[in-house]
Write a protein that binds this DNA or RNA. Structure first.
Length: 431
DNA sequence: CATCCACCGGAAAGATGGGGCT
DNA sequence: AGCCCCATCTTTCCGGTGGATG
């Protein structure tokens, strides 16, 4: 992402260096391993992979209902707005995309219709959302409009969005995935009122996806009344459906490498995890990786079991590696306290002092205590720490007790791997 | 049983850095 | 060039909290 000036010291063109040859050969060896004994087409197991639509399992009812709500769009009328609920991995996005694409495919000849999918966990502010939508619907060739990613005011982005819709579409469907992560309701408000406030003649149908059932209730009254959403809820997949979903992806593997019990076991695991299809696929993929790493000929149930814990560890490691430096220092403070004490829970004050030590030690800025509290809350939101409020009464007031969710050793190791924490004096602790 | 401790957490505003427009 | 807008992180200020304490 950045300038490459610091690394690449070995690039120069003197090819006769033996060490470099060796490296090339190692790399070649790995890259050119043509025969993968386990996988035939691994991309079928990627999370982003959308199965061909005739393979959607067990969601016929949902597809039917959603299609009915959107029926108007096909003829150029206003579709209903829909809020789709359901736990993660229950096919909400998949079905929404599928039905929208079908609406586009089956539209009457004289109806200009389009749909776009917006992930509100990425574009979580009104401005970003308006920007992304405007760019997604736009075609510079046709409209002559260029829409920059950033730099414009929110109002300016809306203005362009309306222009684009006006020029290019009679009806659009907008899928807002994870709509509950949106910072505020303004986007929904604007979209639902675009017509009546004369911004555009294009009719807009919103499909808002949320995994929190309470979300609609929290919605601003004004939004609710102008959106008038229909509600649709998705149930978790049962074990049998999960199994079927996995069977459809069997082609990812070479024939006969999957032991009979593997898919049912993955399905059973995922079914106990709230029927999350994504998890089922994850576990299956990881099982394949485990088998590969162990040079096995087939994927066994044991591989699935091992993969399950491995997958969780990987996820956790990635999560911790990805947090900002200040958060790492904070987390490390908590880990060190846990390592040096019988207790599991520590009041914020104590953790803060430890955090100050760490910052001093590695020469990092110390944040204010207020900010520190927010950092802890963010860590709690990510599920890395747990915090519990307790009132210690007259001598202590209210305090948060913080506890690591994972083993402190693991957390400690992961953070110490970060180069910026290398200089940290070993186990500086005792308070 | 009223008090009171000292931390919690909301609000607002500053700092910094991304970028576009005219 | 000078101005405007937005995102993110941080600090400052301060009212709220509720069980242990006397």
């Amino acid at each position: 992402m950045e300038d490459g000036s610091s690394r690449d010291t070995s690039v120069p063109d003197d090819a006769e260096q033996p060490s470099e040859d060796a490296e090339v050969n190692i790399a070649q060896e790995i890259f050119s391993q043509q025969e993968d004994p386990i996988f035939a087409n691994k991309s079928l197991l990627e999370i982003s992979h959308v199965p061909s639509f005739d393979r959607i399992v067990g969601r016929d009812n949902e597809i039917r209902k959603l299609s009915e709500e959107l029926r108007g769009a096909v003829q150029g009328y206003s579709p209903e707005n829909v809020i789709v609920y359901g736990k993660t991995g229950t096919g909400k996005s998949l079905v929404s995309k599928y039905v929208s694409s079908q609406a586009v495919a089956n539209a009457h000849d004289d109806v200009r219709i389009g749909y776009e999918y917006l992930d509100c966990s990425t574009d979580n502010t009104e401005t970003q959302a308006a920007s992304t939508l405007a760019r997604a619907f736009n075609d510079p060739e046709e409209t002559g409009l260029d829409i920059p990613e950033r730099g414009l005011s929110t109002a300016a982005y809306y203005k362009r969005l309306w222009q684009v819709l006006e020029q290019r579409y009679d009806v659009v469907l907008i899928i807002l995935d994870e709509a509950d992560l949106m910072a505020d309701d303004n986007l929904l408000m604007k979209l639902s009122r675009a017509g009546e406030s004369g911004n555009t003649d294009c009719r807009i149908g919103v499909i808002a996806i949320s995994n929190k059932i309470e979300w609609a209730e929290d919605l601003n009254e004004r939004v609710k009344s102008s959106l008038q959403p229909k509600e649709l809820s998705f149930h978790p997949y049962d074990a049998q459906q999960l199994e079927e979903i996995l069977q459809h992806r069997r082609d990812a593997f070479k024939p006969d490498v999957l032991d009979d019990g593997v898919i049912p076991l993955c399905a059973a695991y995922a079914a106990s995890d709230f029927g999350d299809a994504r998890k089922a696929i994850d576990v299956l993929r990881h099982a394949g990786n485990v088998a590969y790493e162990r040079d096995a000929d087939t994927v066994t149930e044991q591989h699935v079991k091992d993969a399950r814990t491995k997958a969780e560890k990987d996820r956790f490691k990635e999560l911790v590696e990805g947090i900002p430096q200040q958060a790492k220092a904070s987390l490390l403070a908590l880990a060190i306290l846990s390592l040096n004490s019988e207790q599991e829970e520590f009041p914020t004050q104590l953790v803060y002092r430890q955090y100050q030590n760490i910052c001093d030690n590695i020469g990092q800025d110390v944040r204010s205590e207020r900010r520190f509290r927010d950092i802890l809350k963010e860590l709690a939101f990510l599920g890395i720490v747990d915090n519990r409020k307790e009132n210690l009464g007259r001598s202590g007031g209210i305090t948060l007790l913080n506890r690591l969710v994972e083993e402190p050793e693991i957390v400690y190791e992961i953070i110490r791997d970060d180069a910026r924490f290398e200089t940290l004096t070993n186990h500086l602790s005792e308070s």
